[in-house]
Design a protein around this nucleic acid. Structure first.
Lengths: 261, 261
DNA sequence: CGTTTAATTGAGGAAAGTCAAGTGAAGTGG
DNA sequence: CCACTTCACTTGACTTTCCTCAATTAAACG
């Protein structure tokens, strides 16, 4: 696969969909080769190792970043539950938006990250000269807005299983959109990160995982890889239909639901 | 006050902040008079009465809207809890983004709405010709993205009182940003709408309201107007510090907390 | 191979959800 | 203008779910 190489070679890449287009469902590269080259000229490549903090909430926002490889998380300190994760950031994602010149959240590394760092001043002048670039940013922002709304929708769910199912669904969609195939869902983040993203306790996440496994809805190859093996039930779950209580679980594969009868 | 009149007269208005600017905290008009006039030329004015549905999730997205007056809500059907409200839409807000040519949510009227209706095709050609307009859209989208993230943050809260406090805070900030003053918070939506926005049951919202009133943190002039009378405690709440249990409530104003001693 | 970190499991309690009834306010028609 | 209907909100009793705390097991790392 030469995918990553080609991304690195050509300059910043931003994937998304035209919010007004009638198009394909598949996300596509929003910047032309020329635009990417121009951005590359004003960008530098930076590397962050696992656990590093790329920037902190409230820092002066001097640059925006475009991930080449690796995964990061955008988070905000929460008095309630330690830390709230607003989004996971994958290759070709953009981050570093600010409010009044200050970053609105912290970004921390989940998996070693390589990224383009683009100074805002240079980006701004580039933007004002290139309508296509501006349009690319519009598409990307719409996409992130919808993503944030989906996240809010997830958080409004009351059932742990439904939350987790929807979380998998989101990861899977992003993965497919990145063109990485959907046979298995890759989860670079740990249970704690997941719990902070879905708004439950770490223990509740663990129990929900186990419950899904016991019900044979998902399978885990290892900590970082899940596979959905019962699409139907999974779909019901993420659509909000609550499953029968765990009491019936032993009678699982077609067995008598009333063992006493 | 000639505010509303001036908005109506000049064409579509979009308020927000430059996501990279160092600016003032106050939102400002993002479009020039000229841009507004050009948009007005391609827009028509539409009116919707209370309870109407402006468009439905999944409809072909032929137009975007810009509210002149009134309040609407963007919502999505949720199997879990009837309906999920993603955002309340106020004057100068923009709505009608789509995915693959279809609206991603429904928009319903809360308070009679007057709005500009702008055909997407015309908007697109306008956008490609006007970098300033594109930049305005970028600013607005960033603003909405942050708003959606705040909403997600709210939904991740576990305590009903904290959720409600944060809800008031968001309403208040928007109100101030619109230049309407903050003496009292105006809530055009009913308790049910609030419950669907903050992700709790209607009853829980009602109880939280009562609790805040009993604790003398807020006062309600009527159904639609709240006033925060204990800013300190309110701030603690929305910062996530949980309040003493209601048992101590009678001993409220400096009384002995241990009546038995 | 031991140490550290991450994940799981259990028991008990608190918070919010649900169901059902009651109160109050707004709007309608006589 | 007032009785009446309706809708919105409130309150209570009970149940469910998840959170908290604490202990245990499993996996990564040097």
């Amino acid at each position: 696969m030469t995918k990553v190489v080609s991304i690195v070679g050509r300059g910043p890449a931003v994937r998304g969909v035209d919010p007004w287009g009638i198009s394909t469902g598949r996300m596509k590269q929003l910047l032309s080769d020329e635009e990417r080259a121009r951005l590359a000229a004003i960008a530098s490549i930076v590397r962050f190792k696992k656990g590093a903090e790329i920037y902190h909430e409230g820092d002066r926002a001097n640059a925006v970043f475009n991930i080449i490889s690796g995964v990061a998380k955008a988070c905000k300190a929460s008095p309630d539950n330690g830390e709230h994760i607003m989004a996971f950031l994958f290759p070709e994602d953009l981050f570093g938006l600010s409010e009044e010149g200050k970053y609105v959240n912290s970004v921390k590394v989940v998996t070693p990250v390589t990224a383009y760092q683009i100074p805002v001043s240079a980006l701004r002048s580039q933007l004002s000269m290139d309508a296509g670039l501006e349009f690319g940013v519009i598409c990307k922002l719409s996409h992130e807005l919808r993503q944030a709304q989906r996240h809010a929708f997830l958080l409004a769910r009351r059932q742990a299983l439904a939350k987790l199912a929807m979380f998998f669904e989101m990861l899977e969609q992003l993965q497919v959109a990145r063109g990485e195939g959907a046979a298995e869902i890759y989860m670079p983040m740990n249970r704690s990160d997941i719990s902070e993203y879905v708004g439950m306790s770490l223990e509740a996440v663990s129990r929900a995982f186990r419950s899904l496994i016991k019900r044979r809805i998902i399978e885990t190859r290892n900590r970082w890889h899940v596979k959905i093996i019962d699409r139907d039930t999974f779909a019901k779950l993420s659509a909000g239909i609550s499953l029968p209580s765990p009491a019936n679980l032993r009678a699982q594969s077609g067995g008598n639901q009333f063992p006493g009868s």
